[in-house]
Write a protein that binds this DNA or RNA. Structure first.
Lengths: 209, 209
DNA sequence: CGCGTCGGAGAACGGATGTTTACTGAATGG
DNA sequence: CCATTCAGTAAACATCCGTTCTCCGACGCG
């Protein structure tokens, strides 16, 4: 193994993670700009002052949550881009992956959707920067598909950004429906997303006229 | 004239509107779930207790703001749907109208984009309901276009919802760029929106296969 | 082993919060 | 014209907040 870190640093990271988890949990029913420092420490079971050992303030915790949330989204993008077969299968698989991701990481999805346009500038910027990176990654994936041969790089990026926006929107919509316990609505939204992707896919085929 | 209302009721509506305006102004830099009652009354210049003469609590004020914000959006939708000529002109006009709307009502746009996924359930529901109404209206407009002749009602609604989502996203993106004072970025986003609409429009033409 | 480091505890602070209460005084309407 | 209604005031309430101290005790390293 590379290096066994000390008990000291391990315990620190443990409470740091506990603070992040508590914050994410509390953000299910409020937004970051109303999240209280004491509120978070109370859930974790540490003194308020302990917070400062890990974050400067609440916005700082928010930025850390962005990295955590969108780090796990990275896996999803890779999974979607890796698909090889026809357009129809790729669409089905894409939506299926999104559905699964929302089911397994509901809090992260909610956090990103909520704070993307939320009241904390630093967090908005962090999310925007990360989503831009994803869009670039998606664009690179699209570039390799034969359909994009005659496309300009700018147009490919435009398409990628639309996909990313659509992905976030769909994930958030599924989550909202799931919160209401309405499984039928989830399926409806997934089906709608599939048809919307199909429509975009059709546009792609005839773009070069 | 129909009926001149009393000085009493007029003065009341005046301060009510002042509370709404103050709330909207404060929401430029925070989200609704962190907006304080005293904060709002302080800006208006009335006693905190006076707030209760107009709203039950802050979420209640939020719901009122939704109605005010999306009431003005109604005009925009009408303006877009009224266009007659070719697809290209309609797209240009649509984006132009959105740009103008964002320039004239930045606070309303920010509020809707922010609270659409925000931390206050009642406000989220109100926005979702209102946007669903807009989507239905857009769908009705699309129905009348010859391009949609062979479409099912369900597919037309799916398309309309995509347009509404795209509209909100674009408006919010333009606003963010405008906040940074980056006029060039605004133009870039507008141009991107036009191309995205063109892509969707292309998909529409070949949907019935 | 012994000493420095440092994550966390605990208490204290000044200030801001939402809500309730009793009140004032001007518009209202018979 | 006079009794009533009611939008807004002023003060007091119990809490809660973020931040700053001092201090403790277990870990890290030589």
């Amino acid at each position: 193994m590379s290096h066994t870190i000390g008990v000291r640093q391990a315990q620190k990271q443990k409470t740091r993670q506990a603070l992040l988890d508590a914050g994410l949990r509390l953000l299910a029913e409020q937004s970051l700009s109303s999240l209280g420092l004491r509120e978070v420490t109370r859930v974790v079971g540490v003194a308020p002052a302990a917070f400062y050992r890990h974050f400067r303030d609440i916005p700082d915790l928010g930025v850390a949550l962005v990295e955590e949330s969108l780090g796990s989204l990275h896996v999803v993008i890779r999974a979607i881009l890796a698909e090889q077969p026809g357009a129809e299968e790729r669409i089905d698989r894409t939506v299926a992956v999104v559905e699964q991701y929302v089911r397994e990481n509901p809090a992260h999805v909610r956090f990103i959707a909520r704070e993307r346009h939320g009241g904390v500038r630093a967090v908005r910027k962090a999310i925007a920067a990360e989503l831009a990176r994803f869009a670039a990654e998606v664009a690179a994936g699209l570039r390799e598909q034969p359909v994009s041969d005659a496309w300009s790089d700018d147009d490919v990026l435009m398409l990628a950004e639309m996909y990313v926006d659509h992905l976030v929107m769909t994930a958030s919509a599924i989550l909202d429906a799931a919160d209401d316990g309405d499984a039928a609505a989830c399926d409806r939204i997934a089906e709608r997303a599939r048809r919307q992707l199909r429509l975009i896919s059709l546009g792609r085929l005839h773009w070069t006229d």
